Amino acid sequence: MKSVDLEAKSALQLDLARRILERMRDLGWDAGTRISVPEMARGFGVSRSPVAAALALLAAQGIVEPTSTRGLQVARRLTDLDFRAVLPQSPLEELHRRMMRERSAGELAQEVSEAELLARYGVPRGVIRKLLMRFAAEGLAHRLPGNGWRFVDTLVGQQAYNESYEFRMVIECAALRSPTFKADLDRFAQIRRAHERIRNAAAATAFDGDDWFSVNASFHEGLAACSGNRFLAEAVRQQNNLRRMQESSAFVDLPVERVEQSCREHIAILDAVEAGEMHWAEDLLRRHLKQASEFRLPG
Rank of each mutant, 00 (worst) to 15 (best):
G299Y: 04
Q13A: 11
G146P: 07
A225P: 00
D26H: 12
Y161P: 06
M99Q: 14
H279I: 04
R120W: 01
P145Y: 00
I267H: 03
E265C: 06
D283H: 04
V46Y: 10
S262C: 10
S36A: 06
W280C: 00
R42H: 14
K130P: 06
V259F: 12
Q261P: 02
L58S: 00
L27M: 12
A136Q: 15
M278W: 09
L270W: 04
G71C: 08
R143G: 00
W29C: 09
S47C: 03
A119Q: 13
F181D: 12
K9N: 07
T69V: 06
R134D: 15
G157Q: 11
E93H: 14
A175T: 08
L57K: 01
R19I: 05
M40P: 03
M169Q: 14
L117F: 10
E7M: 03
H279P: 02
I171R: 14
V112P: 05
S49C: 01
S47V: 03
L16N: 06
A174C: 08
F151I: 01
H96Y: 15
H220N: 03
D184C: 04
R48W: 05
D184P: 05
I128R: 13
E107S: 08
V259E: 12
L21K: 07
L176D: 02
G106T: 11
R97G: 04
V86G: 06
E257M: 11
L108Q: 08
M24Q: 11
P179K: 12
L81Y: 09
R34L: 09
A235P: 00
V152M: 05
L95S: 05
L254V: 10
L27D: 12
L58Q: 00
E277L: 03
D5P: 01
W149M: 06
R143T: 00
N240P: 01
Q89Y: 15
S262D: 13
G148Q: 03
S248K: 07
L297M: 13
L242R: 05
Q13Y: 06
R101L: 13
E265L: 12
G45K: 08
A203L: 15
G106N: 11
F181Y: 15
Q291E: 04
I267S: 03
R244V: 00
D184H: 09
V51G: 02
Y161H: 13
P255T: 08
G106S: 09
M100D: 14
P124D: 11
L92V: 14
I269H: 10
E247R: 07
F219I: 02
M278Q: 07
A203P: 08
V252D: 09
R84N: 14
V252C: 02
R97A: 14
L117W: 07
L254Y: 08
E166H: 06
P88K: 11
V152T: 10
A201E: 14
P88F: 10
D210C: 01
A272P: 10
M40S: 13
R23V: 09
